[in-house]
């Protein structure tokens, strides 16, 4: 598997990324990767602006939390 061929730091980072996405934290690195791959012409938002924007959209509709 790809996972075990990487360095320890990279492995810990990838576990961290999994946890971040499970708890629904904004994934800034993923966003940068996405823009670089698909829309290289767009200047990405800063980390702060991205996090701010992600939070606003997370809490403005029903269906983000349940009983």
């Amino acid at each position: 598997m790809r996972f075990f061929s990487r360095s320890l730091v990279a492995r810990i980072a990838s576990i961290g990324a999994v946890f971040r996405r499970i708890i629904g934290a904004p994934d800034y690195e993923g966003y940068l990767t996405h823009l670089a791959a698909r829309h290289p012409e767009i200047t990405p938002l800063s980390r702060e602006a991205f996090a701010r924007d992600a939070l606003v959209r997370r809490y403005d509709r029903p269906g983000s939390r349940c009983c």
């Binding site: 999994v18 993923g30 996405h34 698909r38």
Partner: peptide
């Protein structure tokens, strides 16, 4: 895919 709301994600995640 916009890297924000629509993001292809591993099934376990």
């Amino acid at each position: 895919n916009d890297g924000r709301d629509f993001v292809p994600t591993n099934r376990w995640v």
